[in-house]
Amino acid sequence: MSEPQSGAPARRGLSPGAVTAALVTPAYLWLTVAIFLPLVAMLVFSFLTAAPFGNRAVEFTGAHYLVFYNRPYLVEVALRSLALGAWTTGICALIGLPAALALSRAFRGRTREVLFFLVILPFWTNGLVRVFSWTMVLRENGILDDIVRAFWADAPSIGILYSYPAIVVGLVHAYLPYMILTCYLSVVAIDDEILEAARSLGARAPVVFGKIVLPLAAPGLIAGSVLIFVPVIGSFMEPRILGGTAGVTIGTVIEDQFTQAFNWPLGSALSFIMLAVVLVVFAVFSRALRGRLTLS
């Protein structure tokens, strides 16, 4: 009956530590090769004078990190990218929070479930295709113009394709479901009785919103903002398709370094500067984000 075992009950030849290691090693080995080592390699790359391919002699340099000093026009591009992030995030918040409130307060039961799902469904479909679809709507004589001209036959074109606003529209469309999702998860938890209690204490609607709803929705608002701002400043495909010549962002500059200019070290340095910004954003908002970086 008894075996020569002395340790934990799970022991059977293999030690618990070995079992754990065997379970996690494949996943983290994979992540190391495909994510972490590439990031390290890119960091090294960003300090090289040129890509070390062929027999080219390369040296270490920090010059690429002075890029904003050496190429002043990039400062403008970087500011435009940050502004793009701010505009997109702000508009998403302005639409997303009321939408989340409407969803959680004006609907009940099964209807609400279905509507909630309809809101987040586009988020998991192909982003590229969704951006592409806007070109047909926003271009001159596009669907938007068709709709306007249905009411006013001689209206001038309001097609805004290949402009900064077009990029914002596309990005808001791409990321709005995220904001509604995070806000919804915050506001749906607000009990009706809390709002009734506030009203019973004499608070009018604006006060209830400012003093009760907004503070309770803040975690969702912040989480949504961070999770939108970060990918937007790294976007390149949306500005390319919707912005045309107006669509030069840090994202497209980085893309160019890797696909057109073949200045990989410079592209790496720019990627890392962007990564630094991303990490700062995450660090600042890490508390609000805790436990929210999951699916839903």
């Binding site: 009956m1 008894s2 075996e3 020569p4 075992q5 002395s6 340790g7 934990a8 009950p9 799970a10 022991r11 059977r12």
Partner: peptide
């Protein structure tokens, strides 16, 4: 039961030392 291993001491069931016997046995 055998879900937790004691740091010290023995467990006997029917006089038989089961301290190092796993739960399922």
């Amino acid at each position: 039961a055998g879900f937790v291993t004691a740091d010290r001491g023995r467990i006997l069931i029917g006089g038989e030392d089961v301290t190092s016997v796993p739960v399922w046995k």
